[in-house]
Amino acid sequence: MSNAAEHPLVRAHLAAVERCTASLPPERRRELLADLREHVQVALAEHDGPVDDDAVRHVLDELGSPRRIADAALAEEGRTCPEPESGLRTATTLTLLALAAPLLLVPVLGPYLAPAAAATGAVRLARSPQWSGREKKHAALLLLGTLPLTPLAAFAVSVVGALDQTGMLLALAIGFCPALLAVLRLARSAGRLRSATAPA
């Protein structure tokens, strides 16, 4: 194979290492992945016989699992591999964050339920070990983006047409988009971490 690093098994292995080492400095992570690619290419070039899936698996097994590689690289930097939370715990955190804005529509209790859901979700997000500080910061900015976007959307709707019940729902839906994006990004990241740290 002209470029062993492009083999699907190698790509999957390196992608898992990349996900597990998300907390490394970007330059260090790029260096690690480049070293691993080079190692795989050299090992396969020296391999006797055809470079098939079995040969690639053998080289990757000798290289070590993505989790083992990540743990060693993180230990050098005084860091640890993030631990995924259970699916239920992740879903609870994301549900609280996602429902904070829509709960404002609940008659009478909405003004109390929405801040409680937002605060509880934010605390759970901040304490979670499965998301990096960078991911938490981006999610927080997107979640806070709901606050200015909703009144701006309401103003835009009022300029275009009447700000009746339908217009208010439209403004709230537009304002909810950053929160939805934050939740989707966090869910995707948690899913990638679970797959990267799952036993082979």
Rank of each mutant, 00 (worst) to 15 (best):
L144W: 10
V51E: 12
E83Y: 00
S128D: 14
A114Y: 12
A126I: 08
P129F: 10
A34K: 10
D164H: 11
A182K: 07
T146H: 15
A101R: 06
D54W: 03
L96N: 08
T146P: 02
T197V: 08
R194P: 07
L88N: 08
R194D: 06
A182E: 02
L36W: 01
R185D: 06
A34I: 03
P148E: 13
T150A: 15
P129T: 04
L96A: 07
R57P: 13
R30Q: 12
V108A: 10
S128F: 00
V42I: 15
H47Y: 00
V106I: 13
L144T: 04
S195Q: 15
E31L: 10
F155C: 09
G121H: 06
S195I: 01
A101S: 01
A91G: 08
C81Q: 08
L94R: 03
P111K: 11
I69P: 07
L144M: 13
T150S: 04
A119G: 05
L152W: 10
A154Q: 13
A43P: 01
T166C: 01
P115L: 08
T146E: 13
A91T: 11
R57Y: 15
A140Q: 01
K136G: 14
L180A: 14
D61V: 13
S132L: 12
C177T: 13
A5I: 03
P84G: 14
P107Q: 14
E85S: 14
P178Y: 12
P102T: 02
V157G: 04
A100H: 11
D52Q: 02
L172C: 09
L96C: 09
T146R: 03
L44R: 10
L181C: 11
P115K: 04
E38F: 09
L141P: 01
H138L: 02
L141M: 15
L97Q: 12
R19F: 00
G49R: 10
